[in-house]
């Protein structure tokens, strides 16, 4: 019993310490973001590797998710004779929820894991220590541009996901099952609000981009610098980032639409 209590205490202390390190890490990284204007090329390079390289998977996923929504939405709505509402159903589902969330999950899987692996390897091959020894702050040089890139890339990816998804819904709904194109768009335009829906969706994806990149970078930074340790850190990134995205999504939804 005593042992159990001690164990619990130990775990608790470790969790708190980890949380503390997370925040210290974030603070150092944010402090490093200040000098980013002078090193704009670093940001460009990271935008390429987390943004451009994730684009294909986002476009393909967005198209299919939109098409599925079109089909499922139609099948459900046609029972109520309300298939004209398909446009607004597809658009709201995408813009409010699926766009930001699925984009963040895919981003965690594609770019987040890559970031963790990259940072972990940098640690294992002493590149991070090497930078420090060359009097170059790794937070400024390595972490800040990556955090900023994730922060910028995810909302852009989510917007692209949404646009492609709406197009996918249009393809299935209008071109295939034959909903009237006019009412598809007009219902959508009447039902989707720029501030309430689209802006909130963008805010969500900014928050998600920040959280996923933060987790990915920290896990890499905190990884045990061996190949096994880096592998485990990568897994942790995907799991933690996904759970964090879903949890935070609930909170944000409750705040925005509750």
């Amino acid at each position: 019993m005593l042992k159990l209590t001690q164990n619990l205490g130990q775990q608790g202390l470790m969790a708190v310490a980890r949380l503390g390190r997370r925040f210290m890490f974030l603070l150092s990284t944010l402090a490093g973001c200040a000098g980013l204007i002078r090193r704009f090329h670093l940001l460009i390079k990271q935008l390429y590797s987390v943004g451009v390289l994730t684009l294909v998977i986002i476009v393909v996923a967005g198209l299919f998710v939109g098409m599925v929504l079109g089909l499922q939405g139609y099948n459900t709505l046609v029972d109520f004779g309300a298939e004209e509402s398909l446009g607004v159903v597809v658009a709201l589902t995408l813009v409010r929820e699926l766009g930001p969330v699925v984009t963040a999950l895919l981003f965690a899987g594609r770019a987040g894991s890559a970031l963790t692996a990259e940072i972990g390897l940098m640690k294992a091959t002493e590149q991070l220590s090497g930078l420090e020894m060359m009097a170059v702050d790794p937070f400024r040089f390595i972490f800040a541009p990556r955090l900023m890139a994730g922060f910028i890339a995810v909302p852009i990816l989510a917007a692209i996901f949404n646009a492609v998804g709406v197009f996918g819904g249009y393809l299935v709904g209008v071109e295939w099952v034959g909903v009237d194109a006019g009412s598809f768009w007009s219902q959508m335009q009447a039902g989707v609000d720029l501030q309430e829906d689209i802006l909130n969706g963008v805010i969500k994806s900014i928050v998600f981009g920040f959280i996923v990149t933060w987790i990915a970078l920290f896990e890499g930074y905190d990884a045990v610098p061996t190949s096994e340790g880096v592998g485990r850190a990568t897994t942790r990134t995907v799991v933690q980032a996904s759970l964090a995205v879903l949890g935070v999504d609930f909170l944000l939804t409750a705040l925005m639409f509750g």
Partner: peptide, 29 residues
């Protein structure tokens, strides 16, 4: 790389514009 990132940013803005103009209608705000 620079060009690709530029294209990426443009695509993002385009998508946002589509969302603002086509999906919602601009006059609602």
């Amino acid at each position: 790389v620079e060009i690709m990132v530029g294209v990426f940013m443009l695509l993002g803005m385009l998508a946002l514009a589509v969302l603002a103009l086509r999906v919602s209608s601009i006059n609602t705000w």
